[in-house]
Simulated scan of single mutants.
Amino acid sequence: MTLSSMTGFARADGADGDFRWHWEVRSVNGKGLDARSRLPAGYERLEVEVRAAVARHLNRGNCQIGLQIDRTGGGADLVVNEAALERVLAVVERLKGRVEAEPPRLDGLLSLRGVLELADTEEDEADRERRDGLLIETLNEALAALVAARASEGAELERVLGEQIDTIERLARDARDCPAATPEAIRARLEDQIARLMDTGADLDADRLHQEAMLLAARADITEEIDRLLAHIEAARALISGDGPAGRRLDFLAQEFNREANTICSKSNDRALTAIGLELKAVIDRMREQVQNIE
């Protein structure tokens, strides 16, 4: 199973005689699943079914759903919304003498949103339920297309993440094999520093210095950090190749990657190891950006 992106767009059209409709669905990344719909007046009754359909197809993402209805055929009549027209005329009357303007024209009034409407011819409850079913059926087609679009982008994300994880593994092994990171190198560096301190002639306790040096050597050892990084890499690859949404868990692993890289940099007192640690952090940051868009 490939990863799924949270970004996508799809549309689907349907018709029933002279009654036509058009669904558009788009999604972007989000912490959870948030579905927001824009339905024409009179179709608010579909809100619950729309949300249920989205939940059946998607697990995460901010999803926008829009429905457009075309009722210009023989199944609809033009009617004036008298209440809306009266409200507009009342506003015009209140503004007389306060705003210089030409008197409103009929074509201008009728072009205002909500003044002129298309009204369906009378239909019984059975016809309405049948048409609602067709509308939701078309929505499911649009959502299925959205899932396919998100999967297509997810396949590209999987490729990019795979390359980044390979790079993280290479850098982790480079850090482990860095000559400056070996216990022998750390011990030799500390012994040299102790010798120089003793050569200063200062009244220093040699035994205490060696004890401190041993503690510093233990703290500078990055073996545990490398082992945890390699374990996280295996877990990330298992998530990518596994079933089900992986975005949240990959995001958690990316945070763990970053924590280990920070520790490696803080323990390093060698230029080569520090350079590896900084490059590791840069790759992990790019990985975290990609992970934010995975379902």
Rank of each mutant, 00 (worst) to 15 (best):
A217H: 06
D207T: 13
V115G: 01
E191F: 04
D124G: 03
A236Y: 10
E117H: 00
R219Q: 13
R130M: 00
M214H: 09
T200R: 05
H232L: 14
R219V: 04
A181R: 06
D124C: 02
A155V: 11
P183M: 11
R150S: 03
E234H: 15
I222V: 15
E123M: 13
D205C: 08
A231Q: 11
L229K: 11
A181V: 13
R189I: 04
G114L: 07
A235R: 15
A149P: 00
E169K: 06
D120P: 02
A202Y: 05
A238M: 13
L230W: 09
E169A: 14
A218Q: 13
D166L: 13
T182I: 14
T182N: 05
A126V: 14
V147E: 04
A144F: 02
H232T: 15
L118Y: 03
M198F: 01
A202R: 09
L230M: 12
L143S: 03
R170N: 07
A155I: 09
D205V: 06
I194C: 03
L209N: 00
R150T: 09
I233W: 11
A151W: 01
A175N: 03
A217S: 11
R237E: 11
D166M: 10
R170F: 07
D124H: 02
I165H: 07
L118F: 03
Q193F: 04
L209I: 04
I226C: 15
A144M: 04
E224Q: 12
L239Q: 12
A188M: 11
E137D: 05
I136E: 02
A236N: 12
R228M: 14
T182L: 12
L239S: 10
L135P: 00
A151Q: 14
Q164S: 14
A119D: 03
A220N: 09
A236Q: 12
A148W: 04
L216R: 08
R237A: 08
A175G: 10
R150I: 10
L157Y: 07
D177Y: 11
R131W: 01
A180F: 03
I194N: 01
A238Y: 10
L146H: 01
R208K: 12
L204V: 09
L204K: 03
A172H: 06
P183R: 13
G162N: 08
A238L: 14
D166W: 12
E212S: 02
A236H: 10
L146I: 06
E153D: 08
A231G: 14
E141I: 06
E191W: 05
P179A: 07
Q211L: 13
L135Q: 00
